[in-house]
């Protein structure tokens, strides 16, 4: 009998959680694990069709199904991902469940304090994040790491069509994600302004992701006279992110994340997995991804340091690639399966 798990998440958007669930299904498929994933989104915020396309593109139909109820079938386990609104329901029906916390937004995880003993465990995507939120949990509630990962070691599922070529003469600095205050693309703009003064004509910006009402990207670029050096790409499908990252790597690009908080840093992990050097804000999640190597980290809010780190990596690009490559082992599909088996055994023991 397969182990049946249903993940519940409030919104089907275009975000990291959907990507994580797809990655898990890819890992189960590649290892022939006897696991069936169902996913229940409380609301479709425009991401459901995109997810369906990705399920088809990765040929995951046997491993990943979308459901619209928790009562249609029996589940061995229900995982509520940042979804406290379903807690009363699973308590009432005494459904075996865990809570997964992926949000870096503190105000969105206040509910963790209210969890009772009927919750089997809290799963988090990395050890540093676990250390950070441990104090936010009730005592005696098990906290387990279910590592986020990039299934780069599941090669067949990750390559579909050829990698696009670019003809840019400048080295692209790549921002990949939601362009909101939390992910802080403006920090990159400020650093880029300095770099354009000190190294005119050497770098350009490539931004890809959904925009946010918090920041008028065009206006901010114009204000700094940077629109002329910038490519803005609309968000891409899940199944194409690997191609885009490899395209940027082929153009000798550098991935930059000035994010103010991450539970894991999925985009940065994907960049490393695909051989793209990174410069990341020095937060716990990023520190874990680069194993604390300061060549790839800069202090938040320090545009000087960010631009210096970028220039240093650009000046010794091959070495940066070589140093980063071994780190991707920490977030491979294999690493996840190890965590998974351990966590599921613990649930069975309870």
């Amino acid at each position: 009998m397969p182990f049946k798990i249903c993940f519940v998440y409030p919104w089907a958007t275009f975000g990291g959680v959907e990507r994580i669930l797809l990655n898990r299904a890819l890992a189960f498929k590649s290892s022939n694990a006897n696991v069936e994933i169902s996913v229940f989104f409380l609301h479709d915020s425009g991401g459901l069709n995109i997810l369906r396309e990705a399920i088809a593109a990765y040929e995951l139909e046997g491993y990943f199904q979308l459901v619209d109820s928790l009562s249609d079938q029996f589940y061995d386990l229900i995982s509520l991902i940042d979804c406290p609104q379903v807690l009363p329901l699973v308590r009432r029906h005494r459904l075996r469940h865990v809570v997964e916390c992926h949000t870096a937004y503190c105000q969105n995880r206040v509910y963790l304090k209210t969890l009772g003993s009927e919750c089997q465990a809290v799963w988090v995507p990395g050890q540093r994040f676990a250390d950070e939120i441990a104090k936010e949990l009730p005592k005696n509630l098990p906290l387990r790491v279910m590592r986020n990962f990039v299934p780069w070691d599941v090669e067949n599922s990750f390559v579909d069509v050829k990698i696009p070529m670019t003809s840019w003469k400048r080295k692209p600095l790549f921002f990949f994600g939601r362009m909101d205050a939390h992910k802080d693309p403006l920090a990159l703009f400020d650093a880029f302004s300095q770099m354009e003064e000190q190294h005119p004509g050497r770098f350009m910006l490539v931004l890809c992701g959904p925009t946010s009402p918090e920041i008028s990207i065009e206006k901010e670029l114009y204000r700094r006279k940077l629109r002329q050096h910038t490519v803005i790409l609309p968000p891409i499908r899940f199944s194409r992110s690997g191609q885009l990252l490899r395209t940027i790597a082929q153009a000798s690009g550098i991935f930059v994340s000035p994010s103010r908080g991450e539970s894991f840093g999925l985009s940065a992990a994907e960049a490393i997995a695909f051989g793209l050097p990174v410069v990341l804000s020095d937060i716990d999640a990023h520190g874990y991804l680069v194993d604390g190597n300061e060549s790839f980290l800069y202090p938040i809010g320090n545009a000087n340091a960010l631009s210096e780190k970028i220039v240093a990596i650009a000046n010794d690009y091959d070495r940066a690639c070589r140093n980063l490559r071994p780190l991707r082992r920490n977030f491979s599909a294999d690493a996840f399966l190890e965590d998974w088996n351990h966590a599921v055994q613990c649930v069975h023991r309870v």
Partner: peptide, 11 residues
């Protein structure tokens, strides 16, 4: 005929 970023967006 050449492979560009457009390939990332068509179905």
């Amino acid at each position: 005929n050449s492979n560009t970023l457009a390939r990332l967006y068509a179905v």
